[in-house]
Nucleic acid binder design. Structure first.
Lengths: 222, 222
DNA sequence: AGAAATGTGTGCGAAAGTGAACATATTTCG
DNA sequence: CGAAATATGTTCACTTTCGCACACATTTCT
């Protein structure tokens, strides 16, 4: 990538306790087993979710049945905020990728809390901005790069998922299908590039999952 | 498009007066002649801008010198909000497409106002959400659609630029080059599709600019 | 006006990406 | 354990898109 290419910012230092305190009623902790749907495209959008534990996949389906994955969110992320901006219906679906513990906040309660609590509002604004930046970068990525580079970038981002440290293990089990949906290409293409990366030593199909080498950056810079 | 395809939301009912009132110092009204740069990629990001009058184009340059246009904003829009989320440098550039009157707000003053004024904060959150939705849709569009469909969608969006009404005239003079940069393809491709649309009667190169027929929608729905 | 800079219409070979098919692996589960 | 369901590696004909080239039109400037 380049100037716009940065790791996706995240608001992980968001304090759930302070958060809980500001919301009086209208909140509820929910558990979702792996693979369960949190909400579906077309559902009424009357709540926001906050991930206390686990990973959630956001996706949309096109009219011709193709699927795209907009992102994989984890602990500390919000999703479903569309409801706050007047969206009456869900534009996409959300499913639990792992067992999850989610905080469900009614739209109304959320709006009230945002209006009432300065600190909370500040944090939420920061969160929205971070998401914005991420989308902006994803968009730039799509506009500029080939699918090979997009895959490389995605793998690098996933490798640093949550952590800031050295070459780390990618989330165990994200299917090539999902990867393909995230960068807008076909699975066969993903398979092809993954193997190329592996042959070049940028990737390692280890025991504990996929090891991403920071050498993969080479692919991005031509 | 489909479920995710909606017109880009906008916060036009945002009240500049209330806005001005909440920001004490740290704001300044600036005039920019057409084509002038407001800020460049790499500049220090220490302020947010609000468009009081005119149109502004946001763009980024890749390391291999290619350009992409992230959006065209107009009266009532904010830009440069990256500075609020800890971005020290501008990720892209902003240039005036028409003579503009912009309100420049220091990062610090903006943060204070957001923290202090509930109403302002609420409006800004709404604005950020709207932007988010737009980016999300653009991203979905890139992931799903061919360049022909992306062009059709863009033209339709531009046609409704600001208005909610009937088939309208597209902004006079947006070059094919810019259109190409917005949907991530080449100018020749844009030219090709534009003529195809025109032959099909979906487009009209009128006097006052480009007339977009709502018939263009059929291109989207296959 | 007339030169220079920009923008547009078109064609074409090369490159990238698609989509479907098929043969293995691997995982999930009764 | 094995059958069924999933996931992965690989091939290949077919499309789409890119990149570039060049002629012509329009706008901008001196």
């Amino acid at each position: 990538m380049g100037p716009p290419a940065k790791l996706r910012p995240k608001i992980r230092d968001f304090d759930p306790k302070k958060f809980l305190a500001t919301i009086g009623e209208g909140r509820k902790v929910l558990s979702f087993p792996k693979k369960q749907t949190v909400f579906s495209q077309g559902d009424a959008a009357d709540a926001v979710f906050y991930i206390q534990q686990g990973k959630v996949k956001l996706m949309v389906v096109s009219n011709d049945r193709k699927e795209a994955t907009l992102g994989i969110l984890s602990t500390g992320d919000f999703f479903g905020e569309g409801s706050l901006a007047g969206q009456a219906l869900r534009m996409g679906s959300a499913t639990a990728m792992t067992d999850c513990e989610l905080l469900r906040i009614d739209k109304k309660a959320m709006m009230l809390a945002l209006h009432r609590e300065h600190t909370f509002s500040d944090l939420f604004v920061a969160y929205l901005r971070a998401r914005n930046i991420r989308y902006e970068e994803d968009l730039v990525d799509q506009l500029f790069n080939s699918s090979e580079k997009r895959l490389a970038r995605l793998l690098l981002l996933l490798a640093h998922f949550g952590k800031e440290s050295e070459p780390e293990t990618v989330i165990p089990k994200i299917s090539q299908e999902t990867l393909a949906e995230m960068i807008g290409t076909t699975r066969s293409r993903v398979s092809f590039f993954m193997n190329r990366f592996r042959k070049l030593g940028f990737l390692d199909y280890g025991e504990s999952g996929l090891q991403v080498s920071s050498l993969l950056n080479v692919v991005l810079h031509d």
